[in-house]
Lab assay of single mutants.
Amino acid sequence: MATKAVCVLKGDGPVQGIINFEQKESNGPVKVWGSIKGLTEGLHGFHVHEFGDNTAGCTSAGPHFNPLSRKHGGPKDEERHVGDLGNVTADKDGVADVSIEDSVISLSGDHCIIGRTLVVHEKADDLGKGGNEESTKTGNAGSRLACGVIGIAQ
């Protein structure tokens, strides 16, 4: 089992970053940390998408990683996509320092995120509470600013 993974985020604009993942036990939580720069100040949706395909930019990554066919939600919700990591918060300089621990994603097994795409979005994720159909699919997080395929790390 891989215990570490990394993702280099890039987009068409100024947004870029490096996100690290570490899972010490196969059924334990995954620590997610790193930094994203070039964002507007505020909240930005942060999700693992189904495919590791960036051939047409971030759009070819498909929908959120959702092997259990659930509705979109927040990272602490029972009803959520596996890939729903909530929001990252950018400061006035456009930098989001990421520090998350998640017990639904994994670096092995059915919820493995390796080979899938991590995406940072234009807007805040409403965590499935926006009151419309799009909220239950995407959290109304808007366009995909930057993305990268999650790969095994040393």
Score class of each variant (00 low, 15 high):
G130A: 10
F51L: 05
K129E: 13
F21L: 07
A2R: 09
F51A: 02
G13Q: 10
S69T: 07
L118T: 12
V32T: 07
G142Q: 13
D91K: 06
E134P: 03
S60G: 04
G42S: 06
G139V: 01
L68E: 13
A90P: 07
V48S: 04
D84N: 00
D102V: 05
N20V: 06
L107R: 01
R116P: 01
G109R: 09
P67L: 04
G128A: 06
C112F: 09
E22Q: 08
C112K: 14
N27F: 15
V32Q: 04
G28H: 13
A61V: 04
F21W: 14
K123N: 08
T136A: 06
G45F: 03
W33N: 09
G139F: 02
S69Q: 15
S143M: 14
D126V: 01
V82E: 08
G130R: 08
K37D: 06
A124H: 13
T89V: 10
G130E: 07
G128K: 00
S35I: 12
L85Y: 04
S26L: 07
F46I: 13
G13P: 05
E133V: 08
V149K: 01
S69E: 03
E101R: 15
V30C: 05
V32K: 00
V8Q: 13
N20W: 09
Q23M: 05
T117S: 12
N27W: 07
T59Q: 13
V95Y: 06
P67N: 05
V15P: 08
V119M: 04
T136K: 15
K31G: 15
A5H: 04
T55W: 02
V104I: 13
K10T: 14
G38R: 06
D77R: 12
G73M: 04
R116T: 01
G42C: 05
D97C: 10
T59C: 05
G42F: 04
R144V: 00
I18P: 04
F51M: 03
K31H: 04
S103K: 06
T3P: 05
G139I: 03
D126M: 03
D93E: 11
S26K: 15
T138I: 04
E50S: 10
D125E: 02
D97Q: 15
P29H: 06
F51K: 04
N27Y: 10
K31V: 09
G73Y: 03
D93I: 10
E134Q: 04
Q16M: 13
E122S: 10
F46A: 11
G34M: 05
S103M: 15
S143K: 04
F65A: 04
N27V: 13
G11C: 15
G62Y: 01
I114E: 04
R80M: 00
I18V: 12
Q16P: 06
L107Q: 03
E50D: 05
N20S: 07
W33G: 12
F46T: 12
E25A: 07
G94I: 10
G17L: 02
I150S: 02
H72C: 00
G128E: 01
R70I: 14
D12K: 09
V15R: 11
K37F: 06
D125A: 00
L107I: 11
R70S: 08
E134C: 03
V48A: 09
L68P: 09
G73S: 06
A61K: 01
N132P: 09
T136C: 12
T117Q: 04
H81Q: 01
D91M: 11
K76V: 11
N54F: 12
D110I: 06
L118F: 09
L107E: 00
H44R: 04
L85G: 04
K71D: 13
N27L: 10
K123A: 12
I152K: 04
H111M: 11
G109F: 14
P29L: 15
R116L: 00
D84W: 01
A96H: 04
A90T: 08
